Computed example of a mutant assay.
Amino acid sequence: MESLGELLQQMKNPSFRRQSQAIEDELFSHPLIKELRTLYPELDDSKLRLNLSRLYQYVGDKRNCDNCPGLANCPNDFQGHFSKLDVQMVNGSAEIYERKAPCSLHLTKQHDDQVKKRIRSFYVDERALNEGYKEVEIMGKDRLRAPAVQQVFHYIRETKENGLSTRGLYLYGSFGTGKTFLMSYMLHELAIAGLTGVIVYMPDFVEDLKSLMMDNVKLKESTEMMKNCDLLIFDDIGAENLNPWARDHIMGSILNYRMNRKPTFYTSNYTLEGLEKHLSFTNKDGEEGNKGQRLMDRISPFVDVVNLHGENQRGKH
């Protein structure tokens, strides 16, 4: 590092002074600084010279923003922000103050991060939650599923306009028709509106409950989250290998709490009648019709049924 004496000596050098003068002249002739002087005529040359570093930062940030390489590669000192200059009169003298303002890309990322924080997923492929959604593309992908898509769109509009209902949707259809995608789209749209959501892939969740039995804290946290979120989706219900504890104590507890409070949504390959038969059978106790019916009493009355027709989209581009 140079000593103070060396630095002072360098400043006496004619070439250094010429270089400094060239930088000053370039700054003073820059359109941004000219605009600043037009807005604030009280800014004379001496005041500008006292704030050369602020002016340099201001112009440099603007140049970087005009050639923006994207938020991740932002070259500004404070990523996603740019310098703004404010001029205020203090004791009759014009003073220049610098502040950092967020750019539009940073604000968009902040908004997207807030939306993502409102959505929690258990064992669901994150691609279904993170890919872009376009209503025209969703409608046009397969005309057979248009009626079901319209019902989901209608539910989203109603919720945005009138607030959260206690009724959810039961979306059923054959493999690969886009049930999970549609429910993820609904979560995303309503998260933008400020609602919280949880989506649970049932086969993996029920399997994982075996290990959660040994971790009461984590089990309680998970079930409380499912009970209290605004929107809860049980994805691919009917594909899990049920046991009595998962069905009666976990699912039963969650649904018992939510009914008449908050909406629960389902995707399935089963009709409601087929789901009741599935819920009536467990690997441990075999068929127990009354247990399945008890759970269905917490599902059927609180959903609108949506039959999703369409072609299997898996593997298609």
Results as ranks from 00 to 15, higher is better:
Gly5Lys: 00
Gly194Ala: 02
Asp230Cys: 09
Met186Glu: 15
Asp113Cys: 01
Phe302Val: 08
Asn67Gly: 06
Tyr155Glu: 07
Val306Ala: 06
Thr264Ile: 12
Lys134Leu: 13
Tyr97Val: 02
Ile156Leu: 06
Ile250Arg: 05
Asp44Thr: 10
Glu158Val: 03
Asp61Gly: 02
Pro69Trp: 06
Asn13Cys: 12
Leu169Asn: 05
Glu273Asp: 14
Gln114Trp: 00
Gly176Glu: 06
Pro31Thr: 02
Arg294Lys: 15
Ser121Thr: 13
Ser211Ile: 08
Tyr185Asp: 07
Arg247Cys: 03
Leu43Val: 15
Trp245Val: 03
Asp25Trp: 01
Asn290Gln: 05
Met251Asp: 01
Met202Leu: 10
Val152Asn: 08
Asn13Pro: 05
Asn256Phe: 04
Ser211Gln: 09
Gly176Val: 11
Arg247Gly: 01
Glu158Arg: 10
Ile33Phe: 05
Gly173Gln: 04
Arg314Gln: 10
Thr264Ser: 15
Glu276Ile: 02
Leu182Asn: 09
Met259Asp: 00
Leu43Glu: 13
Asp77Ala: 11
Leu105Ser: 12
Ala94Pro: 15
Phe281Tyr: 08
Ala101Ser: 10
Leu212Tyr: 07
Tyr123Thr: 05
Thr196His: 00
Pro75Asp: 14
Lys134Ser: 12
Met202Asn: 01
Asn307Met: 07
Val136Cys: 00
Ala72Gln: 12
Leu295Met: 15
Arg258Pro: 11
Val152Glu: 11
Leu71Lys: 00
Ile33Val: 15
Asp215Lys: 14
Asp125Ala: 06
Lys210His: 12
Gly132Ile: 01
Arg63Trp: 04
Pro263Ala: 08
Thr180His: 00
Met296Glu: 13
Phe82Val: 01
Gly315Arg: 00
Gln151Lys: 15
Asn241Met: 09
Leu308Arg: 03
Asp230Pro: 03
Arg261Val: 13
Asp236Gln: 02
Lys160Met: 01
Asn228Ser: 14
Gly315Met: 06
Gln114Ala: 03
Gly178Tyr: 05
Asp125Lys: 03
Lys179Gly: 04
Glu137Ser: 13
Arg37Leu: 04
Thr282His: 06
Pro41Ile: 04
Pro75Val: 08
Leu255Phe: 15
Leu195Cys: 02
Gln293Pro: 00
Ala191Leu: 09
Lys220Ser: 01
Leu169Lys: 14
Asn64Cys: 07
Arg37Asp: 06
Gly60Ala: 13
Leu295Asp: 06
Met226Arg: 09
Leu144Cys: 11
Met202Ser: 04
Leu8Lys: 10
Arg118Asp: 10
Gly163Phe: 08
Ser29Arg: 13
Asn67His: 12
